[in-house]
Design a protein around this nucleic acid. Structure first.
Lengths: 226, 226
DNA sequence: CACCGGTGTCGCAACCGTGTCGCAGACTTC
DNA sequence: GAAGTCTGCGACACGGTTGCGACACCGGTG
């Protein structure tokens, strides 16, 4: 459903909450410290981050600010009951919501959905899209596959964005040439073939049986599940 | 009446509901897991999908989202009584209706008809056309018959698209040559015959009694129900 | 000035699609 | 009923389309 990152130092809370959210259909990655959380954030490009406020070393607010320097991903802060809830500080740091521990998984799930639904109006429709194990973050212009970041060149990224803009639909070489390469003439357009081939080499686990980019002989290419 | 896909992991529910809906005149395909459901969806191209919310592994919402990335087919979610019914999340995922288990077949049938009747008002114009058990998706350039994907070569596909563009109308060999083959001269045009023959071999259940492509002796071919 | 990553071009190989041919069967016409 | 024409259909070989590696160019950078 959604790729989440949960940063929480308390083992029991982290594990049980991750499991519970998994049952609600979320794909949950976890980290136990602030630095590890930032690392995981960069690697996995989650659609939403859940941050414990009280973390050893760099605390939740710090992590929140760090993330905000590079991304607009929704962030939910977790605070222990009885903590001085520094809502103002948290909102300043850029959090989207607050949840008090101990938290019911059902409630957490509802909050997650609420925040995701709320979205951010200024973002283009669908900032991040997930296709199988491929995650495309249009806001951050990053692509991750199976949790690992994929380094794409500008052209490869444009091609992937264009293809994934209309999943399941065949795009002709001519169309791709115009939208990605901004050429209007279709010469001997092995250019598109080559672009697709290079993109496949980076995002396809098995290029002999493409999982994301299908070639439709005689027509063009189609992005989407097989 | 309608081609349905039922995705439900509980054997007894799946089998009994499928049977019951069959008695109401529906053509029901079933799948027991999310991935199998997606597979079946792609293969059979059903007119409506019934999804259990709680599935092992990828849950109903997930399947719903996946389907929505490529199709606008109506989706009805099935939830167990007492489950936390996340209607908002489900509607956000793209579901069209909710039904609580255990469900009366009569009720289910009514809901199915209601959803189908409601149609697809706000959705993008359906580029897919259905003729009997033949489904032609002009955007994805795919053809399925009786739920099974049909692999067509470029020429076969162009021919089918051309013929189905004007159902019930006879197209001459000359016309087909020009539109499909982009030849203007009609030499020994066994070419068209051959193309039709190859196409029939793939989409006709019984080539001796063509259900989709009729030959009009002396004139050409006609696409459409007998 | 050398280096380097990105990108367009070229060429080769393999596979699949497709046009051609021939024959048999079906339909029409006389 | 017979001849002539039209269509179905299997076989085959040529050619086109695509995948993919190699190379050259080019702009930016230390």
């Amino acid at each position: 459903m959604a790729h989440l990152l949960l940063v929480e130092d308390d083992d029991s809370v982290r594990i049980s909450l991750a499991k519970a959210l998994g049952r609600y259909g979320h794909d949950v990655a976890t980290a136990s410290t602030g630095p590890l959380g930032l690392q995981a954030f960069r690697d996995r490009g989650p659609e939403l981050v859940i941050l414990d406020v009280m973390l050893p070393g760099t605390d939740g607010f710090d992590v929140c600010r760090q993330i905000r320097t590079s991304a607009t991903v929704p962030i939910i802060m977790l605070t222990a009951r009885g903590d001085d809830i520094d809502v103002v500080g948290g909102l300043e740091a850029g959090a989207d919501d607050y949840v008090v521990k101990p938290v019911e998984p059902r409630v957490m799930d509802a909050r997650i959905r609420a925040v995701l639904r709320r979205g951010t109006p200024d973002r283009s429709p669908q900032p991040t899209a997930t296709y199988g194990e491929l995650v495309i973050d249009r806001a951050a212009m990053t692509v991750t596959r199976a949790g690992r970041a994929v380094a794409l060149t500008p052209t490869e990224l444009r091609l992937l964005l264009e293809l994934s803009r209309s999943p399941g639909q065949v795009l002709s070489r001519q169309q791709l040439l115009e939208s990605v390469w901004e050429h209007s003439y279709l010469g001997d357009s092995r250019l598109v073939d080559n672009g697709v081939q290079r993109l496949r080499a980076k995002i396809e686990p098995d290029t002999t049986a493409p999982a994301y980019i299908q070639t439709v002989r005689g027509f063009g290419y189609r992005f989407g599940p097989v």
